Amino acid sequence: MTKSFIVTLKDHVPDVDVASIKDSVSKMGGEITHEFSLIKGFTVKLPESMHIDSIKSKHSDAIANIEEDKEVSIKK
């Protein structure tokens, strides 16, 4: 089973660092499922056994935010 996360990067992050983060995701057995064009960021799928915190701590200077990608609804 996998979990999906939205990874948002800081605006100043150079492309070489973006590539390094993507490489870390791949090495953890994860997969980039979508890249955003308006902001620096992407969605990733990771095996549930892997913790997104390891990517967050390794690349903390480049990552603005990581949150679980899940359906959002409005209840009336």
Rank of each mutant, 00 (worst) to 15 (best):
L46V: 06
H51F: 12
S54Q: 14
E68N: 06
A64I: 01
H51P: 05
T33W: 04
V72L: 13
V18I: 13
A62V: 03
S49W: 08
S54T: 15
G30R: 05
T33C: 02
D53G: 14
S57Y: 13
K56Q: 14
V16G: 06
V18F: 08
V72N: 08
I21W: 02
I21R: 00
I21D: 03
D69R: 08
V72R: 14
K27F: 05
I21A: 08
I39Q: 06
F36D: 06
K27V: 13
I32D: 05
I52K: 05
G30F: 06
V18P: 00
D23F: 10
P47W: 06
A64P: 00
S54M: 10
S24I: 03
V18H: 00
I55V: 13
K70H: 15
G29A: 02
I32Q: 02
L38T: 14
S60Y: 13
S24D: 12
D17C: 05
K22Y: 01
I63Q: 01
G41R: 00
V25S: 04
I55Q: 04
S60N: 12
K40R: 11
E71A: 14
E67H: 11
M28L: 15
V72P: 00
L46W: 03
M50C: 09
V18W: 03
S60V: 14
E68I: 11
E35T: 14
A64E: 15
V72S: 12
K70F: 11
V25C: 05
T43A: 13
H34D: 09
S60C: 06
I55E: 00
M28H: 06
K40I: 02
S26T: 11
V44M: 10
E67W: 09
S20D: 07
S54F: 07
N65I: 07
S73M: 12
G29Y: 11
V72M: 07
I39N: 03
A19Q: 04
E48Y: 09
A19F: 03
D23Y: 09
T43F: 07
H51I: 10
F42N: 00
V25I: 15
S26N: 11
S37G: 10
S20E: 06
S37P: 08
D17W: 04
I32S: 01
E31D: 10
V72G: 03
H34W: 09
K22V: 15
T33K: 13
D61A: 11
K40H: 09
S60M: 07
S57M: 15
E35F: 01
K58H: 06
H59N: 11
I32W: 05
S54N: 12
